[in-house]
């Protein structure tokens, strides 16, 4: 047995030195790499035989790869993947968090269409998304194009535009509710004194139909800086030669934008729109902090899906029902992402 091993090792060692020789003489990088891989295999076999190891080289390589992934993936699987599966299951139960679980089939989903508060939340969320996504996209793209030019104090403007994004929501919603205070705030004061809006017609920013507009404006203000940075990165990836060529062809600024910038930014826009949509569907804290008043409760004019999910889960303990609303939220996000994806693919084809 041992003799056999020794012979094997000897043979492999010979192969090893031959390969080493070849590697040094080989000039083609691709071939060289292949040789190295082969030599590594041989070396590994040798040590494996010497140490009586039985794990194959592939397994070792995979173990290394998994060892890199494990710390994150385990956390990710336990704290994200499992709850997601759990959420799907929960949507078909009427669990209250304490009593035994009973499966109720589609009951939860069946009662959704007659639930006034769910419908109001759905409607408000959709209006909010439809308002915020295009506005933020246009604003951030416009700002990015301006800041991509050679302007003085570019860094200053960038930083300033990014400020609202880093600022905490609690703090800046407090500022907004003071600035837009319906009777004492500076915004309405300006409307009253400069634009001469009659006192009775001063907008009540945080109630009625206006509240969604306020939420949209606030979100655009807060998030445009973030998407601007993404657009800036996209713009920097466009080769200047394209513009030079366009300039030679006599393209004006609009045409340059229409035929060079916009198509070149397609994948960036895709990313921006998808991220924006996902983030907008998640709206909760903005609504509660701006429209919730002292008790953080939202009326039908300002309620949003996540608020209703929270209410059902943590106030009524209807965990199944709240999960079914969450599923609706998820399906909507999924559909919009898929539509975007298809559209993007079609454009690329």
């Amino acid at each position: 047995m041992n003799e056999k091993k020794a012979a094997q090792v000897k043979k492999l060692e010979a192969e090893f030195s031959e390969l080493t020789q070849q590697i040094y003489t080989e000039n083609d990088i691709v071939k060289k790499r292949k040789l190295i891989a082969r030599r590594d295999k041989v070396r590994w076999k040798v040590t494996a035989i010497k140490n009586n190891r039985r794990i194959s080289r592939e397994t070792k390589r995979e173990l290394i790869a998994y060892s890199f992934i494990a710390p994150n993936f385990i956390g990710f699987a336990v704290f994200t993947l499992i709850p997601i599966v759990f959420a799907f299951v929960l949507a078909f139960t009427n669990w209250d968090g304490n009593n035994a679980v009973t499966f109720v089939g589609l009951e939860n989903f069946k009662s959704l269409p007659t639930d006034t508060f769910f419908l109001a939340a759905l409607r408000n969320t959709i209006i909010y998304v439809l308002g915020t996504v295009p506005l933020t996209m246009v604003a951030s793209l416009g700002l990015a194009i301006l800041l991509n030019q050679k302007v003085k104090a570019r860094g200053f403007f960038r930083t300033v535009a990014f400020f609202p994004y880093v600022a905490s929501l609690v703090a800046i919603t407090a500022v907004w509710s003071m600035m837009f205070h319906p009777s004492k705030g500076p915004v309405n004061y300006l409307l009253l004194t400069v634009l001469k809006v009659p006192q009775a017609d001063l907008p009540k920013w945080f109630s009625g139909t206006l509240v969604l507009l306020t939420l949209i404006l606030f979100s655009v203000w807060k998030y445009m800086g973030y998407y601007m940075v993404i657009y800036l990165a996209g713009l920097q990836g466009i080769s200047p030669e394209l513009y030079e060529a366009g300039g030679l062809d006599g393209a004006n600024t609009w045409q340059k934008f229409r035929y060079i910038t916009w198509p070149q930014l397609r994948s960036t826009t895709f990313f921006v729109v998808v991220m924006l949509t996902i983030n907008c569907f998640k709206v909760y804290d903005i609504a509660v902090m701006l429209a919730g008043g002292g008790d953080g409760k939202l009326s039908t004019s300002a309620t949003v899906l996540v608020y209703y999910i929270y209410q059902n889960a943590f106030n009524y303990w209807k965990l199944g029902y709240s999960s079914s609303i969450a599923m609706v939220l998820f399906v909507m996000v999924l559909i919009i992402t898929l539509i975007q994806f298809r559209y993007q693919k079609k454009l690329e084809a």
């Binding site: 997601i84 759990f86 959420a87 929960l90 996902i278 999910i309 889960a313 965990l319 939220l329 992402t337």
Partner: peptide, 18 residues
């Protein structure tokens, strides 16, 4: 896939698990 999944979708089961 989970990037496209709003956290709010699974916050309740996650909470129960935690």
């Amino acid at each position: 896939a989970t990037i496209a999944m709003p956290w709010q979708v699974y916050m309740v089961p996650q909470f129960i698990m935690m």
